[in-house]
Design a protein around this nucleic acid. Structure first.
Lengths: 340, 340
DNA sequence: CTGAAAGCGCTAACAT
DNA sequence: ATGTTAGCGCTTTCAG
């Protein structure tokens, strides 16, 4: 039961100015640059703001100043934990500077991504963060024309639109494969989705192939079903059902992601197939399920949160007039556990 | 290598109008209400738009029309899959109507949530979607003053700020407990975080207590460690380590969430404790890991995506002048599987 | 340290 | 079906 308050959320700068007995400009300054206003004035303004429940209209501010304090981020999916840490890292950095994140997911479709970029550009964001390097030419053109800082993440870009922070998926695939080879596995299969869909997964597959070739072994691929781009546990369980029948012609499977790898682990448990004794399994991502599964999953730890933080920081640095590195390689780490 | 294009992203409505030989207003109409413009005119406008690479400035449009086409959503966390489907459901509905979602996570802290609401209100969103019913009085006051449609989700609200779509966490806890009782378990423990932190989890615990009392049994609680509000698999594994030592004084554990429940499952596997033979385990949420774990988790399926869809639809309906139901109960479903 | 004037780019309202 | 006028609420100048 609020007492007689002012009209609902309707106070404007001028109203605050009137009540505080100063000009609108002084109120604006008191709010944004408190250092440039006399302490007494500031106090009067603050009180008027409180009395009126004034909430600055950022829309008007953005229009005039041509700075929206919005950064757009587009990730392939929100429903998988994969990019959640990255997004979290971004908000962490942006929020600290008064910026807000406008977020959307592309469903792994470059055309959808393009549509989102078009729609979001209308909000005149101060920066844009994309996932991967696989974008339509129209998107690249639009973004370059917009002239705002852009960061591509989760991959190393040969020809970045603007800036880039990521790691080498190819090297990660290679090093993980080498690690399995080092543990004595020889008949290793790589299980991923249709490479046409997912460039990052394909890069890992290429690394796998290179490692196998270097060891004088024949690479072999198994395609995960495409439901949710093969990122489901279910797809991994199905793959395991098919692949275990091929033993002993195969002795290890590298999945392009921890989630299908976990599904495979479960399927093996159901079939009483020993992991890694009968079949070794590795994943990618080092999500919590990889650590907590039994047996724990051998996988690759990826700098998810740090990529988000850095991407946001690079955008902010550019907005502030700086010249951050155009390309940052954050690396990865092969994590050997019990499953392979 | 783009050919001689216009200045970067700088075209305004007036430029398009000039090129198309019409007034700015006609361009505005051609873009937003194509039906109210002659087909020929529309074609000329479309061509001018393309030629100039014109992207409408939504900031200016929002300032003038007092409609931002932005809806704000605040969820407790992004890094857990729990709310991802809900967010996905929202974007699905909003995007279809040209609305965009401004998203943030509160980290389960009402004070953080309040700060976010304050910050976001400056964008003059057309609606706001919150998680839960546990908000600071200041937040409630601000939102009521703002006069925009608000939906609280994931719970049934006794006194909603405005609108509400959810399900009864209490009933869900009770029905799940009854199901375990029906399967012959008697010494059932409820494992959740400090109830002061998480109202939804507390409600489930209350339902559990009611079911136990009704069966003439003594309720017993185990507190999960508070890392990430006890939503981690790790916290469940630790709980299992402690609780298994108490057998046979306990024969089943209900976790407030599938993730700790899964962690407990893994811990039991490590200790060669049979589930459900030696200890039954149940979770909450019906996330993919519940279906794919071995043994598969008994849990409660919750209408995550549908809550998101409905919340968004209710906001849009109100914006359009309609009067949607103020309170929608979407129910839940106990899913009996192998773990309990 | 404070203020006055001007206008960001668009659309509501009212013509025609 | 199209055009004119005015102004959304703020901040960027430029003065004092």
């Amino acid at each position: 039961m609020p007492s007689k308050t002012a009209a609902p959320g309707s106070a404007r700068l001028a109203d605050v100015a009137r009540l505080a007995g100063v000009s609108a400009m002084t109120v604006s300054r008191a709010l944004r640059l408190p250092g440039r206003v006399a302490p007494q004035t500031r106090a009067r303004v603050d009180e008027a703001v409180r009395a009126l429940g004034y909430v600055p209209n950022l829309v008007a501010g953005a229009l005039k100043s041509q700075r929206s304090r919005i950064v757009v981020a587009i990730v392939p999916t929100l429903t998988s934990a994969i990019f959640a840490e990255t997004v979290d890292g971004m908000t962490e950095v942006l929020r600290a500077q008064g910026y807000q994140l406008l977020l959307a997911n592309s469903g792994y479709a470059p055309e959808t991504e393009e549509g989102l970029v078009t729609a979001f550009l209308g909000r005149r964001p101060d920066g844009m963060i994309l996932t991967g390097t696989q974008h339509t030419p129209e998107l690249r053109a639009q973004l370059r024309a917009a002239g705002i800082p852009v960061v591509e993440t989760w991959e190393l870009a040969a020809d970045p639109i603007d800036m880039n922070v990521g790691f080498s998926n190819r090297a990660a695939g290679r090093r993980l494969t080498e690690a399995l080879l080092g543990r004595g596995h020889r008949r290793i299969v790589f299980a991923g989705v249709d490479p046409a869909f997912e460039l990052r997964s394909r890069r890992r597959a290429q690394g796998y192939r290179a490692a196998m070739r270097a060891a004088g072994l024949a690479p072999a691929f198994h395609r995960l079903d495409d439901a949710d781009r093969g990122l489901t546990m279910r797809s991994g369980a199905r793959a395991a059902a098919a692949l275990t029948a091929l033993r002993p012609r195969i002795d290890a499977v590298i999945f392009s992601n921890d989630f299908p790898a976990f599904g495979a682990l479960s399927e093996c448990a159901r079939r009483a197939i020993a992991v890694p004794g009968d079949l070794a399994i590795a994943g990618f991502g080092d999500f919590e399920v990889a650590r907590e599964a039994h047996p724990a999953l051998t996988t690759v730890r990826v700098p998810g949160r740090e990529m988000g933080r850095r991407a946001a920081a690079m955008i902010l640095e550019r907005i502030a007039g700086g010249a951050p590195a155009r390309r940052v390689d954050l690396g990865f780490e092969v994590v050997l556990r019990d499953s392979a």
